[in-house]
């Protein structure tokens, strides 16, 4: 009796082994050509309507055109992308789901400040076309004329100006490094925290706080109400051509400029998948590259203020990992908002 019970599983195991053997024996190219054989999902770890969501939805028809399968967008917001990232880690490595993500700073930040269980290195960037930079700005009604004036007043009395910023953000790191460089005691400055870029911008434009440190892109619709004081970048921005740059500001003040990108957004997969399914990864990479460079895509997305620059995996991963490393280095700055 025991034999008969065991017999079935053994036979099943044999069949399974045979099947697996057959799959392994099948030529890799033949298998690769069947991918993708069902729709691809773009996973956005944010709610509908944000930059990543718009980017994913705008790119979807072009990726679809170049990969030959329908492409749909799914949102899984929450927990500063922890929920979306964790969900993505649980998916099979079959290449049917690709993230559209503000990988930097959200992945490293969620690890440093929300104890997420994945590592920055678990993710692989296909292309990060969009970057957003921290902008220090004040309401035009505030009568603050320059960043030097802000430095002067904060140096004379750290309590003289209130500063609005998001906790656990690249903006906070940039603000902290900037204050450190000027020898301003951050613990004495009146730092007001906002749980989101939107509220921080409203508070800046409404003059609730004197100066706001927050991603510059979101300020564009209310550009007329704010005065850009300092852009945390080393190159001129087309959005804020008149904003002083951190590099120039630092040179004048005599310190080494250091900053992290506010957001690096684009297509992300898991490193695990790249290693396990190199052919499928190559197909995805080719399709996303072709879609990004598609002239129709470039013009459509350009009209929607969405970026379509092709940096490729190598440059994108380098940018992502270096900003993740910087954030890790300054992790303690994040913990004392």
């Amino acid at each position: 009796m025991t034999d008969s019970i065991h017999a079935i599983p053994r036979r099943r195991a044999l069949l399974l082994a045979a099947g697996a053997g057959a799959a392994l024996a099948a030529p890799g190219i033949a298998r690769a050509q069947t991918f993708p054989e069902r729709p691809i999902t773009l996973l956005v770890p944010f709610a509908t309507g944000g930059y990543n969501d718009r980017l994913a939805r705008a790119m979807a028809p072009f990726v679809q055109k170049h990969i030959g399968q329908p492409v749909t967008v799914v949102n899984r917001p929450g927990g500063g992308t922890v929920l979306g990232n964790t969900f993505y880690m649980q998916q099979p490595d079959d290449g049917y789901m690709v993230m559209v993500h503000s990988a930097g700073p959200y992945i490293p930040l969620s690890i440093l400040t929300r104890n997420a269980r994945y590592k920055a290195d678990d993710f692989h960037m296909i292309n990060l076309p969009s970057r957003d930079l921290t902008l220090a700005a004040c309401a035009t009604s505030k009568g603050i004329n320059s960043i030097d004036e802000v430095v002067q007043r904060l140096k004379a009395d750290p309590r003289s100006l209130s500063i609005g910023v998001q906790p656990a953000s690249a903006d906070l790191i940039n603000m902290a490094l900037w204050m450190q460089a000027h020898g301003i005691d951050r613990s004495r400055v009146r730092v007001v925290t906002y749980d989101g870029g939107g509220p921080a911008r409203t508070a800046t434009a409404g003059g609730h706080v004197d100066v706001g440190f927050v991603g510059g892109e979101g300020f564009l619709p209310i550009k007329d109400r704010i005065k850009p004081l300092l852009l945390f970048s080393d190159e001129k921005s087309t959005d804020y051509p008149d904003a002083p740059l951190l590099t120039d500001h630092a040179r004048a003040a005599g310190f080494q400029p250091q900053s992290v990108d506010g957001s690096q957004r684009g297509f992300v997969v898991l490193k695990r998948f790249v290693a396990a399914q190199p052919e499928r990864y190559a197909i995805l990479l080719r399709a996303i590259e072709a879609a990004t460079k598609d002239p129709e895509c470039v013009s459509t997305l350009g009209n929607q203020q969405l970026a379509t620059t092709w940096y490729g995996p190598e440059a994108s991963n380098r940018a992502y990992l270096s900003s993740a490393a910087l954030m890790e280095r300054y992790a303690d700055l994040l913990k004392q908002a």
Partner: peptide, 21 residues
């Protein structure tokens, strides 16, 4: 008047604005 979404509903409206350039 401000381009600021007061809540989820207006955020979606703004997204739809953006989708239409």
């Amino acid at each position: 008047a401000l381009g600021i979404p007061g809540g989820g509903a207006t955020a979606i409206l703004l997204a739809s604005f953006a989708m239409h350039n």
